[in-house]
Design a protein around this nucleic acid. Structure first.
Lengths: 342, 342
DNA sequence: GGTTTACATTAAAAGGCTTTACCATGCAGA
DNA sequence: TCTGCATGGTAAAGCCTTTTAATGTAAACC
């Protein structure tokens, strides 16, 4: 328990502190022989460099802050779990720790998001889950601190972000549905995120571009929850708007599953009568009945890449990041050709 | 951006470094006048002490590691969200940061749980969500590092824990149901946690103690998922086991809601024909139909208290912690007196 | 008036690592 | 033989606080 330090290792190996430090940091200047000797000693003593000393000397904390919104059910969403797992794994690979922060009242009012960086508790900050109304990220526009929005963006700002390509998602979805012959399409959209809006707009635009009569395009708001209930209720609305709809596109899988459950209850065949599509490809999408056709958003990879971008920003390898990650169409059983009887 | 340090503050205020430090740490030895002067300067410059320097000097990291299991859906559970929120808020109050760790393969195989503490990246560790098969906590039995299991325990070990009082939960539930006249009772239990087992055993024991015929007590395994589906399936089993059951106790609310959905589907009246109870009092318990009678486990408070205990262990204010938190019976509409016609 | 006490402040020693500039040494090329 | 240059290693400064023992000063005591 008496803490062992770099000094102890150095003494035992008959080398200087610097040498041990260089070995620890994989500096190639040290010969293989010395390196091996030091590493062996380190292993034998279970030596772990003191993180604070390291951070102090190297002027970095080797930690990033991951900020999640203060929703009661923030974690009640596979969404966050996947992204955080990705961030975590990549951070671990790069020797970084992940610090969790919740954007609650105190966090915002005390401007802790700045304090964290000022005090070097974190080298940078990732923000997952920006509602259209979130204000604090704006303060990072002029700031030199590394800050990155994960799967969100604010139009007309210089804020860094890495997000899924919602525009491409919309295109792939439209292509798939229109390709199956659907001409009367319902869209269930979320309205509280810029990505959601982007998706809905792109979806509508591309439908029209492919020749769908705007009159045959029916959009309803799924609300802010992106939940089964939202999808259920929105589908009910859609059904009242038009009897001719043969395909329903939901802004995420959970709303899509909610849509399925409504249609199922009403005895409507999927995809015989109506096709249903989602976005994300959450685990349960493959297990709904029928299994859900969706646009796969690789959120785990998004997490990993987000961390990488943040680290690159921190190291000044890049100075800006406003990127999109590709998406994949996953065809399952919830979509099919429109039935011949028009 | 040119980092400002304690030295700058000291110079500007014409005091020594020590004075500034003492002010920062609310040491009462400093006069009001000096204190005010320093604080003003600190505020004006947005000065935040360097966390690494602070940690190095004070031999602590001011961070704790919160370890969650590596389940795909770890966060897909209000359970974790509530506890983590509690931990986070209390930690923030005490000036601590929360570091997130995931007990994945790498974390376990590289024994990072020890490395974190050795390297002083964290002052202590909280582990949420111990499956009966988790092995790594055992290594903390002889270790001097502060370690606390949150809402779990391992029988016959000296591992520190803070958990809800599942025994009391069982007692309150039994009292409630038996008090309503129920004599044929079904129990849906989870089998992969020691707390779940404890609850089930206590429930059965106390039923018998209150005079229930063991023959009239029917227990089925809800499996490891503690999910709606588990509750649904388990209830189906129960119904096959005995036609006389008038009350069903589920190990958690989600299984209880699953039970309700099964009974509902079968046209069985709740609580007219059968009463249903859960444990936890998750948000949706109040909104199920009928609203769910349950034992409230204040998980947010559990999170807060867990952090407090860990900090106390770290500061050696206590040397051990094997405590329970009280629970509360919440009577709603899913339970009622057994119907008179026997 | 001299001595305690109490209070407010400070100097200086850690704390454990990274990093830069510099020092040997050995060897190839001239 | 001498110069030049890798190569491998080291000394020492620096990172920014906390903390302890010491100092100075003013008020309180006998």
């Amino acid at each position: 328990m008496q803490k062992i330090t770099i000094k102890d290792i150095a003494r035992e190996c008959n080398v200087s502190l610097s040498t041990v430090s260089l070995v620890l940091n994989n500096n190639p200047r040290i010969s293989e022989a010395t390196r091996a000797k030091v590493q062996e000693s380190v292993r034998r003593h279970n030596y772990q460099p003191n993180n604070n000393a390291r951070g102090l000397a190297s002027r970095s904390s080797l930690a990033v802050s991951v900020v999640v919104p203060h929703l009661g059910h923030v974690f009640a969403d596979v969404y966050f779990g996947e992204i955080i797992s990705g961030i975590y794994d990549q951070a671990a690979d790069d020797g970084y720790k992940v610090m969790l922060d919740i954007a609650n009242e105190k966090f915002l009012s005390t401007k802790e998001y700045l304090g964290l960086l000022r005090s070097r508790k974190a080298d940078g900050m990732l923000f997952i889950g920006a509602n259209i109304t979130d204000e604090f990220p704006m303060e990072f526009q002029e700031s030199a601190y590394p800050f990155l929005l994960v799967n969100h963006f604010y139009p007309k700002t210089s804020l860094n972000y890495l997000a899924m390509d919602y525009r491409e998602s919309a295109h792939k979805a439209v292509e798939h549905l229109v390709g199956l012959g659907h001409r009367h399409i319902g869209l269930v959209r979320g309205t509280n995120t810029h990505t959601g809006i982007e998706f809905a707009e792109a979806f509508e635009d591309y439908c029209i571009e492919l020749g769908i009569d705007p009159q045959h395009l029916h959009t309803v708001d799924g609300g802010d929850d992106w939940d089964l209930e939202s999808g259920y209720a929105a589908t009910q609305q859609l059904m009242q708007k038009s009897k001719k709809i043969t395909a329903i596109m939901a802004g995420n899988d959970r709303m899509a599953i909610g849509a399925i459950s409504y249609l199922d209850k009403k005895g409507i065949q999927i995809p015989g009568d109506i096709s249903v599509m989602g976005v994300d490809d959450i685990h349960s999408a493959a297990f709904s009945s029928p299994s859900l056709t969706t646009i796969w958003h690789d959120l785990y990879e998004l997490g990993k890449q987000s961390f990488k971008r943040l680290l690159a920003l921190y190291k000044k390898e890049i100075t800006t990041c406003q990127e999109r990650l590709p998406v994949t169409l996953i065809v399952r059983d919830s979509t099919g050709p429109v039935s011949v009887i028009e």
